[in-house]
Amino acid sequence: MLLEVAGLRKSFGSIVVADDLDLTIAASEAVGIIGPNGAGKTTLFNLIAGGLSPSAGHIRFDGSDLAGLPPQGRCRAGIGRTYQIPQPFENLTVFENLLVGAVHGRRKTETEAVQACGEILDQLGLLKCANALAGSLTLLERKRLEMARALATAPKLVLLDEIAGGLTDGECAELVATIGDIRKTGVAILWIEHVVHALFAVIDRLVVLNFGRKIAEGAPKEVMQRPDVHQIYIGIEA
């Protein structure tokens, strides 16, 4: 298994945001996570990427325990992430944003990293604004930059946090196609998303979280048929 989360627990005082979570992801597998607001989805990402440390439980990645490893170490181990609210380096160019990940996440020199960065920008349709300041990008471009920057670190697993939120249907379809392309390169994907139809176009397996607990897991269509999941997701069409 690429990622093994076992008995993961995180609480802030009396509020439990991750409660005895188990989750595994195989190499080049795509797994989706849904759940209502406050279900602990982003917290799970922060625990995996190292922004938060768990109160209990273990996270193993690519055969080694991640306990105590800071975010930069997890990035170098092969975990790339995007943020729900894009976090571009506004005063750097789009290309320089990628270069940060390639140079520091992969320990390459700038010259060694150029070709890979250029190819990722090309793949994600950002080549035309490569030398523009990241602060000048539109929302769609910012979301693409989030992904491009994560890919520049050559991850084995990318964590996508509501990457399709706030986009128009057309933009969303384009983004789904791009994520599909990324999948084909063998990168494993763990994807939190409220836009369920976008998620279902890509993932193999679905996990449903509620109040920090995993309440369902399995084939996407089957999981959505379950009454308890349906109850949480009333009104949302799969």
């Binding site: 190292g50 800071p70 975010p71 976090q87 380096f89 520091h104």
Partner: peptide, 12 residues
Amino acid sequence: RDREAAAASLGV
């Protein structure tokens, strides 16, 4: 300078 947390998650 621009985003400290994001810099860390890119390996800085």
